[in-house]
Design a binder for these strands. Structure first.
Lengths: 153, 153
DNA sequence: TTGATATTGATAATCGTTCTCAACTAGCGT
DNA sequence: ACGCTAGTTGAGAACGATTATCAATATCAA
């Protein structure tokens, strides 16, 4: 819990600094939305976060949540992920993993693979690119969906 | 040219078979849209393809193009790619590569890396998944955008 | 405290895409 | 060739997610 607390504090500080650095203001809304966002463990859509926020702060508008989420991305606190079906999910930054997605039940497993990251760098270098980020999504059927035998393609 | 011809013919046959197999009909529109789609070399958006189609067949509606593109995906002739910024591009199936995207100028370079594919399979297996496809996008600055020094992040 | 300026919330607007539905047409059986 | 039936089409309405507009409001440095 205390560890979690420091992570949240770190994020808050990071936002405060970003706002100061860019002549922006620290508002109740931004604090509240950040709070809600940090309370989410995995991935969340803009809309879900809005519901989430609204549960505690009913007077915060949807536009403000969208704006805040974009702000968090700019400030390096969040990441937007665009999945196969066009759905956009946000996750905490620093929480970077790649994703294994079940097309049967929608489960999302996160993974890391340093070897792959090495190959990515090599490929980028070969093409003269300087990488800033990547998206690596594997789609398939999880063990459960394979055995339940439904939606076989 | 003759090689290209056979590739197109292969795609046509594939569509015809898919339609027959699913009790669907071979229409002028679908043929025309497939023709236009095959005429595109790289990636294209639904809207661009619609413009493209309309140039030759002004009486084909947008909805029909959207429907056809989805059909081509189902028939295994096309692939939808969802990029970072939410843009959806379509490419020919059988033309599967991964992508290196310049966030400066938007250039898209395609690459293949068997080693990475091997790691993907291993990761999937470790998690009990059976892979059906993957999306692997690397974002960065191409050599040109790095040297022109603009939009440095 | 005040004032300049960033931010907010409600809502209109926008974008890309899908739905609705009456008119149309492919393609089977005859 | 004909007619029938079910799939398909085009126009435009509807849609869902997101962004822009704008007057009211809040932040924060002086």
């Amino acid at each position: 819990m205390s560890e979690h607390q420091t992570e949240q504090d770190g994020a808050r500080t990071q936002l405060t600094e970003y706002l100061a650095r860019n002549g922006m203001k620290q508002t109740r809304q931004r604090e509240a939305i950040l709070e809600s966002f940090l309370g989410v463990s995995g991935h969340i859509t803009s809309e879900n976060l809005y519901e989430y926020v609204r549960a505690q702060y009913p007077d915060i508008g949807a536009a403000t949540v969208y704006r805040a989420l974009k702000l968090f991305c700019d400030a390096g606190l969040a990441h937007a992920l665009h999945f196969q079906d066009g759905v956009t999910l946000y996750e905490h930054e620093g929480h970077h993993h790649d994703h294994l997605i079940c097309v049967g039940c929608g489960e999302i497993v996160e993974f890391e693979c340093d070897d792959i990251e090495d190959f990515q760098l090599r490929i980028a270098r070969d093409h003269g690119y300087r990488l800033t980020k990547h998206r690596h999504h594997l789609y398939g059927y999880c063990a459960k969906c394979q055995s339940s035998g439904t939606d076989r393609k």
